[in-house]
Simulated assay, not measured.
Amino acid sequence: MLDLLFPDDPAPPSGFALLRASRRAMATTFEVALPFGTRYAVPAAEAALDVIDELEDQLTVYRDHSEISRLNTSGIADVEPRLFELLSRCAGWTRESDGAFDIAAGALIKAWGFYRREGRVPTAREQADAMSRTGMRHVVLSENAVRFRAVGLELNMGAVGKGYALDRAAEVLRRDWGIHSALLHGGGSSVLALGTPPDDPRGWPVRLRHPSVDRSLGVVYLNDRGLGTSAATFQFFEYNGRKYGHVLDPRTGRPAEGTAAASATAPTAAEADAMSTAAFVAGPALADRLSRTRPQLGLVVLEDDADTPQVFNLAPDEYAPPDPA
């Protein structure tokens, strides 16, 4: 989805090199890239990756002992304060997006088979049942306590977990190691930049790739900002000649349609992940409205069958369009 413009040569034309540390987590590869010469680069990168491991253990729905899994099982619990803060932010993003982004969609994800990556079309009854157990409107949040009002409702943090993990990892780099220039990513779909690279005051350059052909959708420059991209490039199935992607529309209970890819830049990677998901689900109309009400949000949305993306709220020094073919 995202083509990180890292120099691979030890002496790249840009004049600087990067130390890159990576680790598998959340079913993808996370990477921390630091300018060569950064003090304590290796232990700092390892500490940041350790935080990501710890957060996977808290947020995953694939481990029975995780805090999210235990909450899904019980339907009521006092949760760790930082997790409560994240759930509260997610509830706010659900309201702002008119339900296009919603982490309380675990029942739908299972109904469509994406939980085990075994996609299937549910029956009308199965879909209706899953919809009755979907939506943050059924989740009560109060003073670190969480309660589900719908039996069988399940949270799934897949649309925001990687970005949140990057935010927390970057927090460690800043607070504990005094690092203010770095680029972190989780699988390419979630990115967070600290400061700028040594040779470009605009920020860390990240190329947005077309989801289905070898073509660029432009380059964004990140300076203390997150970037999230949503697309159904890899996770989908075909049934009766029709493609069904893994990004579900919580409002309809079906895979989102009409958008090929959506990217968002925001002050945090978690928010960028959430807003890219919302824009992918609801398309350019919502992207336009969100960009008007949120001055720090930028969006790039490519509709199905469109040649060029629509760009919202990104200045020329933040986004460079692709070169003409």
Rank of each mutant, 00 (worst) to 15 (best):
S66K: 06
D214F: 07
L18P: 03
A105I: 15
L184I: 08
R70S: 11
L227V: 08
F84T: 04
L173T: 05
Q235R: 15
G186T: 10
G258I: 07
G228M: 06
A104W: 01
G253V: 02
P295E: 11
G298R: 04
D3L: 11
R133V: 08
L302R: 02
Y239S: 15
G195F: 09
D9C: 10
A320M: 06
A266I: 07
G92R: 12
D176Q: 12
L153K: 02
H185W: 01
P255I: 05
P322D: 03
N72W: 08
A130S: 14
A231Q: 06
M275Q: 10
H65C: 09
S230Y: 05
T233D: 13
L86K: 05
L141E: 06
D167C: 05
E67P: 05
R24S: 14
A150P: 05
F237D: 08
L166G: 03
G187N: 09
A27C: 11
A107G: 11
A11V: 11
E118F: 05
E118L: 13
T252C: 01
H138G: 14
P35F: 09
A21V: 15
A91S: 13
W93P: 00
N313L: 11
M136S: 13
A306H: 14
Q235Y: 12
P284T: 15
N313H: 13
T196H: 11
G119S: 12
D167V: 06
R225I: 07
V172A: 01
V151K: 10
V191Q: 04
F6T: 02
K162D: 04
R207A: 15
L248D: 02
A107C: 12
L83N: 03
G258V: 07
M136Y: 04
E126T: 06
S88I: 00
F6G: 00
A193M: 09
A17D: 12
H185G: 03
D317E: 13
E154S: 13
E118W: 05
N223Q: 15
E96F: 03
L248K: 01
L192M: 14
C90F: 04
E143F: 12
L153R: 01
V61D: 03
S230E: 07
P321K: 07
R82D: 13
V301F: 06
E126K: 05
M157P: 00
A285P: 06
T252V: 10
A170H: 00
A262W: 02
H246D: 04
A77Q: 14
A47Q: 12
S190C: 13
Y40D: 14
S14C: 14
Q296H: 06
L108V: 08
